[in-house]
Design a protein around this nucleic acid. Structure first.
Length: 712
DNA sequence: TTCACAGAAGTTTTT
DNA sequence: CTTCTGTGAA
């Protein structure tokens, strides 16, 4: 019999109740994951439900993996039979099997927002609209918004949104047509297509209702309309469902998440048991008091109050500093001090509202050689060189994938430029042919050189495509790298940036190898699917002795002994795009609440008097209203010390008599001797200089620290 | 026709 | 500080 003695009475109630739907309002740190995992274990062991009949939906893949292994540690179960994943990955799995109902092939490509944006751009150009007056971002945003409301291009005027452009419906229609032509889906389609399949195919819906006999949903406050429809279709009939969430942590409204899904749960499902988990096991009293005092300023929320038996702990610290540089150095100072005695680096996290704030902190950490991990920002799979290689793989896998085709046709450069590409696309449109037909078509009027190059390209792809039937993903990428000779492309010119890129490509190769070792399926298709649905947080491993940096959004569901929140300023947190509208301010406040409740032992808040924008001008700023919502007695206000003054830091930062180094200069370095500057990158105090020294030794310096002297 | 370079513009949050 | 776009040279 499984143990439940580590659960409190409310948690046990939520775990054991299976006679009707269950809604768990789980405050931050109240042990909701424990409830979910025990509930799954209870269903298997005490109710006798086979694991393959359980569907559990989590917010990230990482959470899914953790849940799987925690269930495994409670009951003996073949974890591969459990259906635990994100909405997107579960949907993708269903679509791989049944998407032919909608006229797609099951080797479809999943487009990320950049891919999707390039499709929108193409559509706008094809409609002969001016790209400057018709912002592709607006159209993509509106299409996504429409999809989140389950609105097709035909009924676009029903959309719940401000301005609707007269061309929106047509752009939407052509966008969808183009995706289908490329046998591709965007993220929103991934959620919507299963609904269409279920609605058109009763027997299939029936099959999945039986298969997913019990449904559990985590972070239910962040589900959107299509996700709600999905679980309704599956669970409304058998009513065997348990959802867990916290309306105070709803932070994805901008993505179509609808809090009323959780607040109106009792209207959608019959006679639910509602359990409130209000005991917090995570944070000290000081931290929880701050969290409660902030969130109670929100008008629209279900009434509840979190409490804890934990120690009072240290007072929450707030400090205002002169600018973002001093803010960064203050944070890192404290972390280094803390980690020299009772804490280790992976106990700490630095949180911020926007990704761009990470740069200053990153620079400082690199200078002080503090190992760090950064989540989000320029994602690994978003890097140009990675997307380029992946595009080859995607095009090999799906010969209709036009976005990938256009990326790789002339990369590395093979003499197929803009004009050739336009000719190819023209023939494709006029002849209504598939991509592979077009590039072998006689109708293409090209120069001899271009013709041969295109022929070579096509033969290469055909060969690789054939090989992909025999090889696993790892063997195939080795074959690809050899055939295209990326190594030569990146390394032959001896440009440091290109060598960095080659190293990233090698990292990609490693990750494919790892995938093939760890995963049940080693096919190229499953690798590509994993890549498009995996986030940085899924790749993150907090066991390394390493400081972590991430946005507040990414931190949802995590906890750290030491939490540092940077940029507590009006216009940044709450963000300037949100301060004019009370509803948005409430979402920002929930976001701050999420940030605060990540902390277990100590919490530090920071703001700066001025902050650089675009590495350009300084913007003065006021401290965040959220700071003022915290009663004074709950915060330790640290005053500026003399060391924090702008004068003292700026003297250190800028070497006033530093010479301006240019490409071609001869320079002297203390350690390496004389050398020649072959590249200068950036300006001001962040200038990076690449120098070749005798013996062809190449080094890259941050000028400020390298102390290079120009030799006349 | 392609390719390299210089200037302009643009950063909320993410599956 | 990055990423995209447009311009001239080869």
């Amino acid at each position: 019999m499984m143990k439940m003695d580590n659960l409190n009475p409310e948690q046990i109630k939520a775990v054991k109740h299976v006679d009707s739907p269950v809604l768990v309002f789980a405050g931050a740190g109240s042990g909701k994951t424990r409830v979910l995992t025990h509930k799954i274990a209870h269903l298997i062991e005490n109710i006798g439900l086979p694991p393959e009949n359980i569907l559990a939906v989590t917010f990230t893949n990482k959470a899914a993996h953790e849940m799987t292994s925690r269930v495994h540690s409670i009951v003996k179960v073949d974890s591969s039979k459990l259906n635990i994943g994100t909405f997107h990955s579960i949907s993708a799995g269903i679509l791989r099997k049944h998407i032919h109902c909608l006229g797609f092939e099951n080797n479809f490509t999943i487009y990320d927002q950049k891919d999707a944006l390039s499709v929108v751009k193409k559509v706008i150009k094809n409609m002969n609209l001016d790209i400057k007056q018709n912002d592709p971002k607006y159209f993509y945003y509106m299409i996504s918004r429409a999809k989140n409301q389950l609105i097709s291009y035909k009924e676009i005027d029903k959309i719940d949104s401000g301005y609707v452009d007269k061309n929106l419906s047509e752009v939407y229609r052509l966008y969808q047509e183009s995706l289908k032509d490329s046998n591709s889906l965007d993220f929103d389609d991934l959620l919507i297509f299963p609904l269409r399949i279920f609605k058109e195919n009763d027997s299939l819906l029936d099959y999945y209702r039986k298969k997913f006999r019990y449904v559990l949903v985590d972070e239910y406050q962040d589900t959107n309309r299509p996700q709600f429809e999905f679980i309704s279709l599956i669970a409304k009939e058998h009513q065997d469902i348990c959802v867990v969430g916290d309306d105070d942590q709803s932070i994805y409204g901008w993505r179509g998440a609808d809090v009323s899904n959780i607040l109106d749960f009792n209207k959608s499902f019959d006679n639910p048991l509602i359990v409130k988990l209000e005991q917090n096991y995570r944070s000290t009293k000081s931290i929880l008091n701050v969290a409660n005092s902030v969130i109670k300023n929100n008008i629209t929320r279900a009434e509840k109050s979190l409490w804890t038996d934990n120690e009072p702990g240290n007072c929450v610290v707030y400090q205002n500093l002169y600018n973002e540089k001093i803010e960064a150095s203050k944070i890192v100072d404290i972390i280094q001090r803390k980690c020299s005695d009772s804490f280790s680096l992976n106990d700490a996290v630095i949180l911020y509202r926007t990704n761009s704030q990470s740069r200053q902190i990153e620079d400082l950490l690199r200078r002080r050689s503090v190992p760090y991990n950064i989540i989000g920002g320029v994602k690994f799979y978003d890097r140009k060189e990675i997307k380029d290689v992946l595009s080859y793989l995607r095009y090999i896998c799906n010969s209709n994938d036009e976005v990938s085709f256009l990326r790789i046709l002339n990369f590395p450069p093979r003499g197929l430029g803009k004009t050739t590409i336009n000719k190819v696309l023209d023939v494709k449109i006029s002849g209504n042919q598939s991509l592979s037909d077009v590039i072998t078509s006689e109708d293409l009027l090209l120069g001899q050189k271009q013709k041969e190059s295109l022929k070579y390209f096509n033969e290469m792809i055909t060969k690789l495509r054939l090989a992909s039937k025999e090889l696993n993903a790892y063997e195939l990428i080795l074959e690809l790298i050899k055939t295209v000779d990326f190594k030569d492309y990146y390394c032959s010119k001896n440009i440091p940036e290109d060598i960095d890129r080659w190293e990233n490509v090698q990292e990609l190769i490693n990750s494919i190898q790892e995938f093939c070792v760890n995963s049940s399926s080693t096919s190229l298709q499953s690798f590509l699917e994993e890549v498009s649905l995996l986030t940085d947080i899924d790749r993150w491993n907090n066991n390394d002795e390493c400081l972590t940096l991430m946005t507040v959004h990414s931190s949802k569901g995590l906890e750290f002994p030491l939490v540092f929140i940077a940029g507590m300023e009006e216009g940044l947190f709450p963000h300037s795009n949100s301060i004019n509208d009370e509803e948005s301010v409430e979402e920002e406040r929930r976001l701050f609440y999420v940030a605060v409740t990540r902390a277990m032992e100590e919490l530090y808040l920071f703001s700066a008097d001025s902050r650089m924008k675009f590495g350009g001008g300084n913007l003065p700023s006021l401290r965040s209203r959220f700071i003022d919502e915290i009663p004074k007695n709950l915060i330790d206000f640290k005053n500026k010390s003399r060391d924090d003054s702008f004068a003292s830091i700026s003297k250190n930062s800028y070497n006033s008599n530093a010479e301006i180094i240019k490409k071609g200069n001869l320079v002297r370095h203390q350690l390496y001797g004389n050398g020649k500057v072959i590249n200068v990158d950036g300006f001001g105090e962040n200038t990076k200089v690449t120098v070749i020294f005798s013996g062809n030794v190449q080094k890259k310096f941050i000028q400020r620290y390298a102390n290079l002297k120009i030799i006349k």
